[in-house]
Computed example of a mutant assay.
Amino acid sequence: MLITLVIALLAVLAVLALTLGGGPEPSSAQPPAAQPVAAVPQPRSEGRDAVAALPRSEPVSIDIPKIGARSSLVPLGLNPDNTVQVPPVTTPLQAGWYTYAPTPGEVGPAVVLGHVDGNHQKGIFFRLKELAAGDRVSVARKDGTTAVFEVTKVHQVPKKDFEAEGVYDDTAGPELRLITCGGVFDRSAHNYVDNIVVYARLVQA
Score class of each variant (00 low, 15 high):
residue 2 L to T: 12
residue 2 L to V: 10
residue 3 I to N: 10
residue 6 V to S: 05
residue 6 V to W: 00
residue 8 A to T: 02
residue 13 L to M: 14
residue 15 V to T: 13
residue 17 A to E: 07
residue 21 G to P: 00
residue 24 P to L: 12
residue 26 P to V: 15
residue 28 S to R: 13
residue 29 A to I: 06
residue 31 P to D: 05
residue 32 P to H: 02
residue 32 P to E: 00
residue 34 A to F: 11
residue 42 Q to L: 15
residue 45 S to G: 14
residue 48 R to F: 03
residue 52 A to F: 08
residue 52 A to R: 12
residue 54 L to I: 12
residue 56 R to A: 10
residue 57 S to L: 00
residue 58 E to L: 06
residue 61 S to D: 10
residue 62 I to E: 03
residue 63 D to Y: 07
residue 63 D to L: 10
residue 64 I to W: 06
residue 79 N to S: 14
residue 82 N to F: 14
residue 86 V to C: 05
residue 86 V to E: 00
residue 88 P to E: 06
residue 93 L to D: 12
residue 95 A to H: 05
residue 97 W to R: 03
residue 98 Y to Q: 03
residue 100 Y to V: 09
residue 100 Y to K: 14
residue 101 A to R: 00
residue 101 A to W: 00
residue 102 P to E: 02
residue 102 P to G: 05
residue 102 P to Y: 04
residue 105 G to N: 04
residue 107 V to Q: 07
residue 108 G to N: 09
residue 109 P to L: 01
residue 110 A to E: 01
residue 112 V to Y: 00
residue 112 V to T: 04
residue 114 G to R: 01
residue 117 D to P: 08
residue 117 D to Y: 04
residue 121 Q to A: 15
residue 122 K to W: 03
residue 123 G to S: 06
residue 126 F to I: 02
residue 134 G to V: 03
residue 135 D to E: 09
residue 139 V to E: 01
residue 141 R to S: 02
residue 143 D to I: 10
residue 145 T to H: 09
residue 151 V to K: 01
residue 155 H to A: 15
residue 157 V to P: 13
residue 160 K to D: 14
residue 161 D to W: 03
residue 162 F to T: 05
residue 164 A to T: 10
residue 165 E to C: 12
residue 167 V to M: 10
residue 171 T to S: 11
residue 172 A to L: 14
residue 177 R to I: 01
residue 177 R to M: 03
residue 181 C to R: 03
residue 182 G to W: 07
residue 183 G to Q: 09
residue 188 S to H: 15
residue 189 A to K: 12
residue 191 N to S: 15
residue 194 D to M: 12
residue 197 V to R: 01
residue 198 V to I: 12
residue 205 A to R: 15
